Structure formats: C-alpha cells, structure tokens
Amino acid sequence: MTAMPAANPFDLTGRVAVVTGGTGVLGGQMAEGLARAGARVAVLGRRRDAGEERAAALRETGAEAMALAADVLDEGALRAARDEVVGRWGRVDILINAAGGNVARARTDGVPPFGMPMDAFDEVVKLNLHGSVAPSLMFGAAMAEQGKGSIVNISSMAAMQAISGVLGYSVAKAAIDNFTKWLAVDLARKCGAGLRVNAIAPGFFLAHQNRGVLVNEDGSYTDRAKTVIARTPMGRFGAPEELIGAVVFLCSDAASFVTGTVLPVDGGFSAFSGV
C-alpha cells in the first residue's frame, strides 16, 4: 500500500502543465487553477499572440508561464511545442486537452440530420477526438520517459445521453470517454503505474462557442437554455472556475490511484431523469 504523503497532496508545485485550448474560457480557467496550485503552465493555442497574452496574465499573478503555438491536429507543430517546453522546463507532468468545440455547419438544431455536410461532421470529430488523441500521444511520450504524468481529457454531457443538434460533437465526446479508459489501461500496463489518464465531463457552462444558442441578444435565456436549467438540479449554469477543483484533484497526488475515470462536473444534470 502506498501511503499518502504528509504534505498537501493537492500541491502541484514544481510540476509542468500543458493546457491545449488554454486561450479559451474554460481552458483559461483550468490554466489559472493549475498555476494557483503551483504548476508551471504552458498555454498551447494556434495563435502565439493569444497564448502570450494568457501567459502574461498568469505571470502577473506570480506564476511561471509560457506560450506554445501549435494546432492540435498538426503532429509536427505538437512535436515542436513538446520540444520547446521540455527544453525550457525539462519535463511534462500534466496535459489538459481543453482544445475543442462545435462546428456551426455540423449543427442540426430543429431539423433532421440528413442535410448535415459530411465534411462538417468530419471537422468536428477531428477537432474534438483527434485533437485530444494527438497531444496525448505526443506529450504522453515525454511522461513515459520520466515514469510519471497525468492526462486529463474533456468529455461532455453529450457523451452520456442524446443532446439534440450536435451529432458530430456527441460522437467525438463519446469516443473521448472510451479513449480515456483505453489509454489509462495501456499506459499503466506498458509504461508504469505513475502514468494516469482521466477525464472531466462538464455540464453546461456559458462559453464563446455556445453563447449564441443559450443566450438571446437581449441577455435572456433561449428556450434551449431554459430546458437545460430545468434538467439541472442545481438550477443554473456552471461557472468556469468550478472546473478547477476537479482538474487539480485529477492532476495531483490526491488522485494517485485514480485512472480511467470520467468525472462529471454538472450540477447533477447527468444524475437527473427529468422526473
């Protein structure tokens, strides 16, 4: 039996975290939370200027932070980003796969899915599935060399039950759940028990990508938003900072025997039958 360390098991001091999609609302909050827990944070996004802006904001709080420029679907760019962070900080301990989102052309709100363009379906699946698999394999290789690391994927309520209008997104997130379990098993058995892979499944949070379908121009909630809140026992949307506790837990020694799990952070949405 491995004893729990006497020090704060949630402390991430000295660890190096890479957050893909770290310039977004939810990814940015996760990056901030990891920094507050003591981690050095590399913010990875397609635009270096946006990453530099986020990293600068983290440094203003006293954290160590840097920006990495890469498309999560570009293997060469990911390799260069990995080499950059390892060259500067010597290791990678944490990967948060927060890059993702829906594609407007792949939505089928209020209509049957027959007219959905297949290239739009492919685009949303690649962004949300391939865009987590590729970074996991690239940065996971660095973790395997050091024998320890934690990968956290982002699942969704759409992986657990049918949510209208988002076929491609739902398919990709369901695959994320399976990928999380598969990679957790494979890495622990082949690379050592110090490598862990988990996911969080956020409920409904207001972000740039979904604001247009949840909030009217006058600031009132759409019918879809009202339905979501009616199905959420806590009766509200989540605040982005409410993801931080789950992420820090899964990345820390407090979760040293936790791998292959998907943790809902959803105000009870996934537990409620609607009755």
Rank of each mutant, 00 (worst) to 15 (best):
V43D: 03
R88N: 08
K148L: 10
K126W: 08
L137C: 11
L127Q: 09
A120E: 07
N178P: 01
M160R: 12
V85T: 02
G165V: 00
T261L: 06
A159T: 01
R54Y: 04
D186S: 10
S150N: 09
E84H: 13
A271N: 11
M116L: 15
V213H: 05
V265R: 03
V228W: 03
D109Y: 07
R224Q: 10
A142C: 09
V248T: 09
H208G: 14
A158N: 03
H208Q: 15
I96F: 08
V41R: 03
H130V: 12
N102C: 06
R189T: 11
A207R: 10
R40A: 13
W182M: 13
I96V: 15
R231M: 13
G76S: 11
F139T: 02
V152T: 08
A246S: 15
M118G: 09
F269L: 13
P240S: 10
M157R: 02
A184N: 06
C191K: 15
G101V: 07
R231F: 11
L263D: 05
D223A: 14
D218T: 08
P9V: 14
S155A: 12
T259W: 03
A271P: 04
V228H: 00
A70T: 06
G45H: 01
L73N: 05
A3V: 11
F179M: 09
A37L: 06
V262S: 04
P264V: 10
L263W: 08
S270D: 08
T232W: 00
V171F: 00
A134N: 05
V19W: 01
L129P: 00
G212H: 15
G168Q: 00
M138Q: 10
G267C: 09
G245I: 11
S136C: 06
G203A: 08
R48A: 13
M118A: 12
F204G: 02
G51K: 01
A255T: 09
N8D: 15
G268L: 13
L34G: 02
A201Y: 01
S132E: 09
Q161S: 10
V16Y: 00
V213P: 01
A39M: 12
F204R: 04
A70W: 02
D218A: 09
G90D: 11
D71M: 04
L68A: 04
G194V: 05
D218W: 06
G87D: 12
S150H: 00
G115M: 11
K148W: 10
